[in-house]
Design a protein around this nucleic acid. Structure first.
Lengths: 136, 136
DNA sequence: CGGGATCCACAGGGATACTG
DNA sequence: CAGTATCCCTGTGGATCCCG
């Protein structure tokens, strides 16, 4: 029971708090990438994650570090090298994230189809066009 | 293997797409509530979810309905009654969401502590205060 | 290379009022 | 009751330039 009544208003705020970080698109991506690849440098992450800007990647990594999910290791070389990896806490997060990831892969197609059906009904229900020139 | 190489750039977009809906705070809340309570009316959801505005709840429900995750049933009465519940697809989503929820409950405290430590180090590293009136 | 700082645009989302 | 419509403001996030 202790784990399943987490929704009764009280922990709703805890969930909100965690979701603000976890629910973030880039955070999920970063955790996913680090979980699979172990350790990555800044630009490796940037290249892997596709559409992320360096600004967003920096902010995301800082937040994850602040929350104790990611470690940041600086090598004082020239040129500088910074490596990121998951902490133990971060690794535990990887399971739920991975589950979500798998669900996405499995059901993405079903969602796309559902959207198509919904949109088709919408288009049929509403007047195709408010054409005002019909009377003239 | 088929489920675990979902990160290789291609499905990154699928994940993004799904995350845009799933990663949304309110969507997670709604799925969580409907998963636990089965069927709920609009205002029941609104009351349960705490800080959601009617505008956001409406939009969230519409999107979930469009994605085939939630059914919307209208009873043409006076006053009107509209009931929401999860579809089969929505129920499958409930497992990953629940996992995330449980993780939040378990690790929220650890995150808060990590933040405190991080913030303390930040405060120590940077000048405590730029107090300009000190000279006067 | 790995950022920090700045500027700016846009959409997300709250508050409020009205409707069927 | 269950929305829709409008207004408006803030945060998010991209683009750009610069620095150690």
């Amino acid at each position: 029971m202790s784990l399943h009544d987490t929704s009764q208003h009280a922990n709703c705020t805890a969930m909100s708090d965690v979701l603000n970080r976890i629910g973030d698109k880039w955070s999920v991506m970063v955790v996913g990438m680090l979980g699979r690849n172990g350790t990555l440098r800044f630009n490796e992450l940037k290249r892997l994650i596709n559409g992320v800007s360096q600004r967003m990647l920096t902010l995301t990594l800082r937040n994850l570090e602040r929350d104790g999910l990611v470690t940041r290791t600086i090598y004082p070389e020239v040129p500088p090298r910074v490596e990121y990896s998951l902490t133990e806490l971060g690794k535990t997060l990887q399971q739920p994230i991975s589950a979500l990831w798998d669900w996405s892969a499995e059901n993405h197609q079903a969602i796309i189809e559902a959207r198509a059906i919904y949109d088709a009904r919408e288009a049929a229900a509403s007047p195709p066009e408010p054409r005002r020139a019909a009377y003239a």
